[in-house]
Amino acid sequence: MFFMKKAWWKILTVIILYYVIFQGLLGTVPRQPILNETIRNLYFHVAMWPTMITLLLVSMVFAIRYLRSSNTVDDDKSAAFAKAGILFGILGCLSGSLWANYTWGDFWPNDPKLNGAAVGMLIYFAYLLLRSSFEDEQRRARISAVYNIFAFFVFIPLIYVLPRLTDSLHPGNGGNATFSSLDIDNNLRMVFYPACIGWILLGTWITSIRYRLNVIKRVQEERVAELSVNHHGAARAVND
């Protein structure tokens, strides 16, 4: 069905990511001062962000689907995708911080893109908090779905639009040279695009595991509920 339990796309994930690791660490890259070999972080740090955005986008699509269908399956999928997206966001923040220390000279330079990403992550942490604070499943699903849509559309300007309006250290933002012909040549592209696809597939794999676990939990809860109902019914029958 939606999460193909088949193995082929998981094999594809592993193949792509091994290609990214080997080619990413040993392939030719442009020689840039200051960046030096750290330009290879393009395949690992930078690729986290398209991955995160894709996972959060899919999460938002399932949130919209939930609001239209009121089917808890859609809510489960939405939550699983959001959680995987948040994981990649945290990894992106941490890896970016390490990279920044050795190229920009500070673990957290007050760059609008960094701060935007941090605020965005906080918004999504609030999403997790919101989810965990409802007892009623229907209410949780509906309010989380609405919040999810809101969060996604706040997040996009925070990390993609606002940094472009001011000065940022990130390429392609403010007065900085863009990530085009000079910064990202065809050698880089040959690894960067597969890297994005590979990490997205890995994120989807993690999402599918979380979702399937959730389905199992739900089925088991139903079984227990059925059992106790049957048990009560049987007890009543005996009493009668």
Partner: peptide
């Protein structure tokens, strides 16, 4: 089995990358 075959294949392919040679070393690279 299939997976370990692919992993091995990638390890072998990447040995080619040994063949790279450094040119114009003004910028410090590895």
């Amino acid at each position: 089995k299939r997976l370990s075959f692919f992993i091995l294949a990638f390890a072998l392919i990447s040995i080619n990358l040994f063949a790279q040679s450094g040119v114009n070393s003004e910028v410090a690279m590895a």
